[in-house]
């Protein structure tokens, strides 16, 4: 009799534990609501902001050449006037408010996809959560690419393929159309964080992580339209392609006489995988530094 009472009690206690622990357990392992309106928070700038500075970016020698032939007039080329910041660049580049919403399958109440709309140049992405495969490799590439997501604990891990070539800094640092981007989204209370890791077999020697993107929940946020009409005439004659011939770039980041706001050695500003790591700081201390003050306009943004 005693044994029987003990058995029932054990079952009841265990049921209670299950309910209690499941309740606590769920947020740790379950999906988190990332939908809503998100206001970007100011953060550390990627790089010194000096135009032509590639420090900290694992550029290949080819990627460095590409950057060193870039001209600011590229943005005035008629065909590129409406080129948007790609979605992955927009997360890191301009401070852009973001709206995230979910598409839920009504019968099963499962999330089919999350979509996000950035105010800046109206870039939009859809993150498919239903396990669908990525499209064949010969299908169209877009500025946002094709994304699938899965939950790793409370972190939404997004894999993006089918990206168009674009800049990672608006001074000629490019990632190719063969890039794959891994983005980890995490909500912490009313904050949303994103860490993106770029893999580009063409222009990067190794993966390039960017981790300072944070937004705060702001239900009063509004977004604006961003219409862009293709430019017919610009300062750059139609058909011209603005660029600098090798060794002739006047960009301040490539001018060894000019200092950035950190007084970095000019060699470091060329970028490359070595410049990503803390060990490089020791090496930088042995390098010659510009003697002059920071050039006018440095730190204007990326």
């Amino acid at each position: 009799m005693h044994q029987r009472r003990f058995g029932v009690a054990t079952w009841k206690q265990c049921l209670g534990i299950v309910l209690l622990v499941a309740g606590v357990h769920q947020p740790a392992f379950a999906q988190v609501d990332i939908t809503g309106l998100w206001r970007p928070l100011p953060r550390n700038q990627d790089g010194s902001g000096m135009t032509g500075d590639a420090a900290g970016v694992p550029l290949t020698p080819g990627g460095q050449w590409r950057a060193q032939s870039w001209s600011p007039e590229d943005f005035d080329t008629a065909e590129w006037v409406c080129r948007p910041h790609a979605f992955d660049y927009s997360l890191e580049g301009p401070l852009s408010q973001m709206r995230v919403w979910a598409d839920v399958d009504r019968p099963t109440q499962k999330v089919i996809s999350y979509s996000a709309h950035l105010n800046q140049q109206e870039q939009e992405t859809t993150i498919y959560m239903d396990g669908r495969p990525h499209p064949p490799e010969n299908t169209l590439h877009t500025w946002s690419g094709f994304s699938t997501g899965e939950w790793d604990g409370d972190v939404l891990v997004v894999t993006t393929t089918h990206l168009k070539e674009t800049y990672i800094r608006r001074s000629g640092l490019m990632r190719s159309d063969r890039s794959v981007v891994h983005t980890r989204w995490r909500r912490v209370g009313n904050y949303l964080q994103a860490t993106s890791i770029l893999y580009d077999p063409v222009n990067f020697t190794e993966s390039y992580p960017r981790s300072s993107m944070t937004w705060i929940y702001d239900p009063a946020l509004t977004e604006s339209p961003y219409p862009c009409e293709e430019a017919t005439e610009t300062a750059v004659p139609r058909g011209d392609v603005a660029h600098f011939l090798p060794g002739q770039s006047p960009l301040p980041g490539l001018n060894p006489k000019l200092a950035d706001r950190f007084g970095s050695p000019p060699e470091a500003r060329l970028g490359g995988p070595e410049t990503m790591y803390p060990e490089y700081i020791k090496k930088m201390k042995t390098m010659p530094r510009p003697s002059g003050p920071p050039a006018a306009g440095v730190g204007e943004g990326n």
Binding site: A22, Q26, F29, A30, Q31, P136, E137, E150, V180, H182
Partner: peptide, 27 residues
Amino acid sequence: SVAVLGLSEQVFTQAGQRTMWAPRLAG
């Protein structure tokens, strides 16, 4: 109890098969 907890994880995460990294694209 352990089994139910395990199931609860599957139910709430809706996690499908892990995406292969990097995903293989059909050529």
